[in-house]
Nucleic acid binder design. Structure first.
Length: 570
DNA sequence: AAACATCACAACCGCAGAGTA
DNA sequence: GTACTCTGCGGTTGTGATGTT
């Protein structure tokens, strides 16, 4: 048992060290992990089939997962369900977070530019969705894969292009008739064929395709040139942006307003990487003088959770955060309470359980009439200070009013808009959408014009729930009070931890001393007298006679000891 | 109004590679 | 070298929403 425990502890210790990037390990974190090891008595399979829930995630589960990840960062997913109190497989948690809950995810359909990028990348990389996704910040491989299968594939087929080979369909048929050798098997669709201008239908591998010049051997350089000429976008991607690697996870930094380009993309200037890098989550590891990225992301999560209609998405835990900074930011970002003060496509609120993407006009689920334009207003500021949990963390609870308002609005929006009798041919719809996506800049004034003209529009971005400023302020005050209490608890815990650390260090020192101390040594006799003499000599270098009495003492002592030794010997 | 068709996408499944004991 | 676990990836499925007949 002890041997097992020790091995497991070492493993867990290593794992934890890995998790914190080799930094100082948080003791209580290790302690809890160790407890977990002791409890489970051995490794468990990733998915304990019994008792593991499947299917759609509930709001409660989302809440738990978000709270846990924000508090602890991404660690070993196997442990996440247990530590977060979820009856889910770790894999499922990872997928849920990666594909849906991550705060940096974009919502909505891919823009024209993104779609084109996907097509180009697919031509080069094939179905390597993760690699493609790495080039589209805020998009997941799953999302791109889905979009490919549901939209792009059909679009290409309609255009007479084979989505596998990216070759014109008729040409491919001819090529097939001409030579079977040149035709790629479906299993090897990770290749791109040269465009017609290159004068060859021969497939080239990824390594030989339009990659950085250093990757191209001399023989293929002309092919490379021709590909790059034919696919300027590819050229840009491969030469200007360097090798294809996983894009870093970026977040908006503190106090930084997100900006949006025409395509509705965010441009986050500062790399946060808080989940990846700040994984030692003890309070002492964070300087709270300024509002940090981690806290910013927690606030983002408030938005996400606030945007979730499902009412039990009410509370968010903020373990070990200083109240002042977080409140300052809440007030800064949401002067009227929770909710974005600026139009923010990332956290679309249409009072559904999740931000609803803009359904394309080509889809059958497209809205036949333009939805009403959203008023650019902030959310209802109905924060409540109740429900403060008194442990290591504190809780912000979104009041039932807000939740209710969200839900009510959801009910309203659920009512279908009666579609006009006049049928719009699908092709026309597609054309309209295309035109809209291509020509209409992301400008609310323009959109208003479009709306009045009867064009299709994305769903509203925000709730229009007017709420008094006073209510928000009152609730913020309440929260401030709670946060301060929590802060005290955190300080106390930190103090305890420091004490524990000191104790551990002291014990370690004692043990070290005991372990490495030399075997029993006899005390040196007359040491004090000897030292006194030496001191005196140092002091009276020029007049040693002044130390005569001390020398006499030392001699007397020595004589006495000698006598004792002799007596003992006899 | 009901049945059916289609769409979008979250979630699952199984496999492969990397890391570790 | 082998066995095992974890993680990531790509393919597929299930389900709810919406349009059409």
């Amino acid at each position: 048992m002890m041997e097992w425990l020790s091995k497991s502890a070492i493993t867990e210790w290593r794992l934890c060290r890995k998790m914190v990037g080799g930094g100082l390990l948080n003791f209580h974190k290790f302690y809890w992990r160790l407890r977990l090891v002791v409890l489970v008595m051995g490794r468990q399979p990733c998915c304990d089939k019994l008792g593991v829930k499947k299917g759609p995630w509930t709001a409660e589960e989302d809440k738990k997962l978000i709270s846990f990840i924000l508090t602890n960062g991404q660690c070993c997913w196997r442990a996440v369900p247990k530590l977060a109190g979820l009856r889910r497989c770790g894999k499922s948690c990872r997928l849920r977070w990666t594909n849906y809950l991550r705060p940096d995810l974009k919502r909505g359909l891919l823009t024209e530019a993104e779609e084109q990028l996907v097509i180009d990348l697919h031509a080069r990389l094939g179905n390597r969705w993760s690699k493609i996704a790495a080039r589209l910040p805020g998009r997941t491989d799953n999302e791109i894969k889905n979009h490919w299968n549901t939209h792009i594939k059909k679009k290409l087929l309609k255009m007479g292009i084979d989505p596998v080979t990216h070759e014109p369909l008729h040409k491919e048929n001819k090529a097939t008739e001409k030579s079977h050798g040149d035709h790629l098997p479906e299993s090897e669709n990770h290749h791109v064929q040269l465009p017609e201008t290159s004068g060859s239908g021969t497939a080239i591998s990824e390594e030989n395709s339009c990659s950085p010049p250093e990757n191209c051997s001399g023989d293929e350089s002309h092919l490379l040139d021709s590909i790059c000429d034919d696919f300027p976008l590819m050229s840009f991607l491969l030469e200007d942006q360097g090798p294809i690697v996983d894009a870093p996870w970026e977040f908006p930094s503190a106090g930084q307003k997100q900006t949006f380009d025409d395509a509705g993309m965010t441009s986050w200037d500062e790399d946060c990487g808080w989940l990846l890098n700040c994984q030692d989550f003890g309070v002492h590891d964070f300087g709270f003088d300024s509002f940090n990225d981690r806290e910013t992301n927690m606030l983002n999560t408030i938005e996400i959770m606030g945007s979730n209609k499902q009412a039990d998405h009410g509370t968010i835990d903020f373990p070990g955060l200083k109240s002042d900074s977080i409140l300052a930011q809440i007030q800064k970002y949401w002067p009227n309470g929770l909710g974005p003060a600026q139009p923010d496509p990332l956290y679309t609120v249409e009072s559904e359980a999740k931000p609803e993407p803009f359904r394309p006009a080509t889809a059958r689920g497209a809205r036949a009439t333009p939805p009403p334009l959203p008023p650019v207003s902030s959310w209802a500021g109905t924060l409540s200070g109740s429900g403060c949990s008194m442990g290591e963390s504190f809780t912000i609870q979104i009041s039932s009013n807000l939740v209710k308002q969200l839900a009510d609005d959801g009910e309203k929006s659920k009512k279908r808009i009666k579609k006009p009798k006049t049928k719009i041919p699908r092709d026309t719809q597609q054309f309209r959408t295309k035109l809209l996506q291509k020509q209409i800049p992301d400008d609310s004034e323009t959109l208003k014009g479009i709306a009045s003209a009867g064009w299709l529009l994305p769903p509203p971005l925000f709730l229009s729930v007017p709420t008094p400023q006073q209510a928000a302020n009152a609730e913020l005050d309440a929260i401030r009070c709670i946060l301060k209490e929590s802060e005290k608890v955190v300080e106390r815990l930190q103090k305890q931890e420091d004490e524990m650390l000191q104790e551990v260090n002291q014990r370690a020192k004692d043990l070290h001393d005991k372990e490495f101390k030399l075997p029993y040594q006899k005390p040196i006799p007359c040491l004090a007298e000897k030292d006194a003499c030496l001191e005196c000599y140092k002091e009276h270098v020029k007049d040693h006679l002044k130390c005569a009495h001390l020398v006499k003492n030392f001699a007397e002592c020595a004589r006495r000891i000698r006598q004792q030794v002799n007596l003992a010997a006899n």
